[in-house]
Design a protein around this nucleic acid. Structure first.
Lengths: 201, 201
DNA sequence: CCGCTTTCTTTCCCGTCCGGCAAGTTTTCC
DNA sequence: GGAAAACTTGCCGGACGGGAAAGAAAGCGG
């Protein structure tokens, strides 16, 4: 009963999580240039070669945690009342949950700066969001009774969510005022639901 | 009058275009693995080192043409009548222009397969779209009289356009039926303008 | 038209990174 | 308990990235 998955699998997941966590911590504490297969592997007490078996790049390791958290957001969406309109679920769940999962705002700021400075980080964060979107697309498709592999709308909406979160995060990182990231995400989502009305003169 | 930019600058642009074009052609004709700094440089008759002075990776070279074309789409948007609502301009211009600029549908299919197969291509195509979105955000901000550096809406809309085009391209590449890419883009845009209404039961 | 300066191209080269391979270790399964 | 499968590790070769300096081309002043 303790093992619905094998010991082997649990160890692998643990190692992957530990490596990812170590990569993240190293970046927060010592900057991006301090994150290398060697330093990360040493922190987890495995060989550098093993690090490369788990992650194709240091960027992937750093951002892996975000994809995991996207998974838990998707689970939270699944847990919403069955009849609730999807847009309502999203606007209810996403802003606070994203803000909650991101942790220290100082950490997020460091991450955003790394993403904006380093081309490899920038590219990889786009990939991470893309992977997260697949998770969201699956949930949305479940809840609307469509198939996200064949129907446009779920994928479009999932992609729009990614856009909302990235746009909000960017605006947050660049703004001098300290509006909350949750509010920014909420505003982006509501604009999207309204069809991005441009107040044109 | 022929030279509003210097000869030097024109030569650089020509070299960049030639390298990008060669990289694209090589991919279409001989597959992704045939595209290397060496082969591309040879096709343009420059040194491999020069190729790397222009592009950070083969993927960047292959996709550079797409970003250029995004620029010409942005120009087309600028040329629309001043009073026209932005969404109308977009729906009017984007679908046909994208389809027209992409050329042979067989080529596009090869590109999509390369993007879906190769992680580096996948990452780079996201970056290319991101760069294109900055161009679109600038146009939208001009036409709505907002500043895309401080206002959310133009960036959100520009990002949504990228999403529409990528989602459409993906659906097109995966569909067995031969709907036109222009129609798919139009459908995505109209769904976005309508706030992605999900026909929920 | 001619040198001088600036910018780009090219060659050479070295350190780093990536990933295949095979030996050693751990887990699984019967 | 022992064979088979899966994972970890060190080693290694080839690819890649980019610095430095010489050579070629373009711009600029006379």
């Amino acid at each position: 009963m303790t093992s619905e998955v094998s010991l082997r699998e649990r160890k692998k997941q643990a190692t992957r999580a530990a490596l990812s966590h170590a990569a993240w911590s190293l970046m927060i504490e010592h900057g991006l240039q301090a994150v290398t297969p060697e330093t990360v592997a040493e922190a987890v007490d495995v060989s550098p070669r093993t690090f490369r078996n788990y992650f194709a790049s240091r960027e992937e390791a750093i951002l892996y945690g975000l994809v995991r958290r996207a998974g838990s957001i998707a689970d939270a969406l699944r847990a919403r009342p069955a009849g609730e309109p999807v847009w309502d679920s999203l606007i209810e769940v996403l802003p606070d949950m994203v803000a909650g999962l991101l942790g220290e705002s100082r950490d997020l700021l460091l991450l955003m700066h790394a993403i904006l400075r380093d081309p490899a980080m920038f590219a990889q964060h786009l990939v991470a969001f893309e992977h997260s979107q697949e998770l969201f697309a699956a949930v949305i498709a479940e809840r609307t009774g469509t198939d996200h592999r064949y129907d446009l709308s779920p994928r479009l909406l999932a992609a729009a969510l990614g856009v909302a979160m990235r746009t909000a995060a960017l605006a947050w990182a660049q703004s001098e005022t300290d509006v909350s990231i949750a509010d920014l995400i909420r505003r982006c989502l509501m604009e999207l639901r309204a069809g991005i009305p441009l107040g044109e003169s």
